[in-house]
Design a protein around this nucleic acid. Structure first.
Lengths: 326, 326
DNA sequence: GTGAAAGCGCTAACAT
DNA sequence: ATGTTAGCGCTTTCAC
């Protein structure tokens, strides 16, 4: 393993100078810096993150956490794209990722992280308060509603849902149902509130129905019940794409045509939305952009630890397809 | 931050003793060990991984890499489950994960990892030779066919495919096609070979067709062409579940009934397979088991660096559903 | 603009 | 069965 000392010898300077060339923390003469860089390249030197962390007390490792059991992510291609975004964005900025275990271990060394990103945390998430208590900077994707302030990156889910209700009204639907689940992610709270508000504005009856879990199967069974009511809904808006597939399935089983008799809207614009027949109207969010912004915040905080929390709201886009176009 | 010194003072012993209580590298009197543990718990002490790494030269961080652009993982719920398995299994064994960036950076500090896991590497994967050169222990999920020996954990894809062809023959299908993609993962090589062999054994014509990419859309378009031939296939076996959905879609568009006129078989048994109508016959693999075994190997190698490469083959299971049951 | 040296938290000889 | 101490690779004060 090549150390800073080897580079210093090769370049004929002190380790201090080599250190500063790599950290940029003090001015080094141009000629000197070039020599050092050349020596480092020749020897294949890269600073050792562990040694650096030990000396500075600060880490460039970012903790990453998903609530896979709770959230929609497990069943969602969205998940993989988010992760891909994290890997790429962090590599660019010289950060490294660590996956946090599902449950908090009290002895987990929060100090080993320079920050943490929590994807779609629910109020029951124990990591957020745990990390906050240890002064580990936290950025959430979606807002944390558990009583601890954090920085966050979120989509404009509410606004998109208003567009959905507007679109449904324009298409002549009048009795929409929002199919959601009881997990308390900010995302769900947002679309539920906006759904009620949007329906009110357009004079649509607004009904909110919860399925027992996130599976397409639950969505299908719930929808079957809804459609067999005396006055069934004429549109179903879903919290995630694959629930919408379950809805379409239920309609098909009952001989109800989509979109004529029943409008269907999903959320996420995953590969699933293009797969449904008819094709699914859905709200598109950009996982790569979410990842990039989250890393940007972590990087900002790392370079400027005292800067205040930041909140970033990215747009969501309504993609209108056949499933809601009469 | 609590250090080993604080614990030593609190417990009235030397740092050496504390160190050994935590590493288990030498015998400590029961009473002493209890005192140390109590002191550590009281002070909230956890060994600092960076310092430990610096002192020993060995890291408990495991690098994790996915070829998200190439593989089927991006579109596959399988992916998330695999990751969940990694997070849980590594937490249990005291390892920590780091996500490797998509592309190799020559300056990447391989020394910062105690091992690496590559998911479905293709021969073009640059990380495998890069890491092998630096004596970083590599475990692949699926075999690496790029000319470097590694330890691996794999499923018995070939055997499962033999069962598939047997099943197809039993159901009276005689002209099956295997729909695959040109990415060179061992998994694809295995099912392609076994498909040929199995068809030969059962006297079925065996045709192998490649789609341009992994999307359901490509599968659908390719299948449309196949089905419009003078003598079309009467069964399509797919390399991944969502391609099978595309196949079913194409059949539906052409008014060809599944499974009567066309048998369809997927692979993975993801949520998608239960979603198709009719329900999809598929080959089930267990992502959690793959993750657990991979971590077990990494852990073995970490504790015993000189032990030879290991190869683990887990069973795959054919799940017969409506899409291939005449 | 550059260096010398102390020390971050831990481990592992070498002691006793 | 336990303790003393050098040093892992780096950063950072203090000095020039």
């Amino acid at each position: 393993m090549t150390t800073i000392k080897d580079v210093a010898n090769e370049a004929g300077v002190s380790v201090t100078t080599v250190s500063h060339v790599f950290s940029g923390k003090r001015k080094v003469a141009k000629r000197t810096a070039e020599n050092v860089l050349a020596a480092a390249a020749k020897l294949g030197y890269a600073p050792d993150a562990a040694a650096r962390k030990l000396a500075t007390g600060r880490s460039t490792t970012v903790g990453l956490h998903f609530e896979l059991g709770e959230s929609a992510l497990l069943l969602n291609p969205f998940f993989a794209q988010l992760l891909m975004g994290f890997a790429a964005a962090s590599a660019e900025r010289g950060f490294t990722f660590t996956l946090l275990p599902p449950e908090v271990t009290n002895s987990y060394p929060a100090g080993s992280m320079g920050g943490a990103i929590m994807v779609d945390p629910t109020p029951g998430n124990e990591w957020v308060p745990f990390l906050a208590r240890q002064n580990c900077r936290v950025v959430t994707i979606g807002r944390y509603l558990g009583g601890v302030e954090t920085s966050w990156v979120d989509n404009n889910h509410g606004e998109a849902m208003l567009e959905v209700t507007k679109h449904l009204a324009e298409q002549g639907y009048s009795r929409p149902v929002l199919l959601s689940v009881r997990h308390r992610m900010s995302y769900l709270a947002d679309i539920e509130a906006a759904f009620q508000q949007g329906c009110l504005a357009k004079r649509l009856t607004a009904e909110l129905v919860y399925t027992t879990d996130l599976s397409d199967r639950s969505a299908r069974l719930t929808t079957r019940n809804l459609l067999q009511r005396p006055s069934p809904p004429d549109a179903v808006v879903c919290a995630i794409d694959h629930m919408a597939l379950g809805v379409a399935h239920a309609a098909e089983e009952l001989g109800i045509t989509v979109p004529t008799e029943l409008g269907v809207v999903g959320a996420g614009d995953t590969v699933l939305s293009r797969h449904a027949s008819p094709k699914l109207t859905t709200v598109r969010v950009d996982p790569q952009a979410l990842a990039r912004e989250a890393i940007r915040l972590i990087s900002d905080f790392w370079h400027n630890p005292t800067s205040p929390d930041q909140h970033i709201r990215l747009p969501s886009e309504l993609i209108i397809r056949a499933s809601s176009s009469r």
